[in-house]
Design a protein around this nucleic acid. Structure first.
Lengths: 244, 244
DNA sequence: TTACATTGTGTAACAAGTACACACAAACCT
DNA sequence: AGGTTTGTGTGTACTTGTTACACAATGTAA
């Protein structure tokens, strides 16, 4: 196994969508006093780790994601690097780092990635630590500067979503127009008119209608669609615009 | 003076506009054989340097920019971090690093910033090294992975330009609509219809017409305008859209 | 005075965005 | 079997934005 680089890490903001709201995957950070068993730290952080000596950023991000979710080949996007001198200097953070004994540096710089996964289909792993999905609208207390990192990720995700069809990464392979709409609404934080939304997305040639309908729903079943990355790539010039 | 961090640097892609085309500021990288005076390396690089121990990324970028241009308070935007394992492994780059004797690490990770300046008003400094503007359409051979960094910067700049009024950073305080149009054309790489361009930008309230005209031009002098960042911030919601 | 270069302007046709209401299908309940 | 619930699917009138396109006016230089 190769050595970590003590002062460089990658943090992943793992977004998931549960057909209703946007969630983030967080890892519990818990520290008990060895003598008194008193809780010294109990909060949450993004998934992150140092990069290894022979590893580039993308690989490190994929590794972290795989370790948590078991998933490979997931959409990952580098969005910003965080290098503030005091980013890990709160007493709690210092305390945590001291207990790690892994040869981390005093000053750690981190590269932020966000990833998009359909969280209806994920079983969380990571034995040693508690891992949980949180709605982005109800976040717990976050350690380090991870609140800042998360907000930046969200902002970049919103911008990206308005310009490229990346939303599909968050949906199951087959989805309905309403699911797609709820996704846009929950990421952009605004509600959209149903008829106009349909009209707009139906123009997009890479949205492929299937001869198949929803099942086991207690209402009129909706038609299912596929996103064709293929068709998208071929017709890219027609700019994607999600102003509404 | 404080110590550098051996494995982390910041590189600046300094864009300038000369009322005609988009340029980048590059620094010559020249190495002669100590005995034979043979030229071992002669190419160009972006302006960059390691960060210091008590310095964050933004500060480091501003420092590098100031050193080269003498300018402060310049538009600077972090756009991507580059951490490929082999990014400095070409023989030329290795040779160069060996001659530096500054305690750099083997594996250097860099954070890319681009900056926008009006290059009609800059006098270049940096005594030891040769520094020069190059049109982005006629770049010389670049050292390290700086070609890749530059292309990424350009791509990010294009996206940003379509969504925010950052073009003004590249123009003198007072400018004409045609200068603005040439700027958009040269960054986006497409020509725009003059009447439609005017119509569009004239709607933007933060473009303030002055009671003043161009001078010393050998044709009908054009009206001058100001960009009001102030008005822009106040009317931000009205999304900026530069599709055309 | 003339040639030149560049500024400044309007409109018609078309495409896209917005706002808005009602019938339909399936499942569930009784 | 019939009614209730819930979310699906559809059209149109209005407003706004996009595109394509040509000619007169202004100042300079010869």
């Amino acid at each position: 196994m190769s050595k970590i680089i003590p002062n460089i890490s990658v943090d992943c903001v793992i977004f998931g969508f549960d057909s209703n709201q946007l969630n983030v995957l967080l890892v519990e950070r818990k520290l008990l006093d060895e003598q008194t068993s008193e809780t010294l730290i109990d909060d949450w952080t993004l998934a992150g780790y140092h990069i290894f000596e022979e590893e580039d950023f993308d690989t490190a991000a994929a590794r972290i994601l795989k370790r948590l979710s078991g998933l490979d080949h997931i959409y990952l996007e580098q969005f910003y690097a965080f290098g503030g001198v005091n980013r890990l200097n709160k007493p709690k953070d210092q305390l945590w780092l001291k207990h790690q004994h892994e040869g981390f540096s005093d000053r750690i710089v981190t590269v932020g990635y966000y990833s998009l996964i359909d969280n209806t289909s994920v079983t969380l792993s990571l034995k040693e630590r508690n891992v949980k999905w949180f709605p982005v609208s109800e976040l717990p207390e976050l350690g380090f500067d991870h609140e800042e990192i998360l907000q930046k990720a969200l902002e970049k995700l919103r911008t990206k979503l308005r310009n490229e069809p990346i939303g599909f990464e968050l949906l199951p392979e087959k989805f309905t127009i309403s699911q797609l709409q709820r996704l846009y609404e929950s990421i952009l934080g605004q509600s959209l008119d149903r008829r106009n939304f349909r009209k707009k997305v139906m123009q997009m040639k890479y949205l492929i209608p299937l001869n198949e309908k929803q099942k086991d729903v207690k209402h009129k079943p909706a038609q299912l669609f596929l996103f064709s990355k293929d068709v998208y790539e071929r017709t890219k010039k027609e700019r994607f615009d999600f102003t509404m």
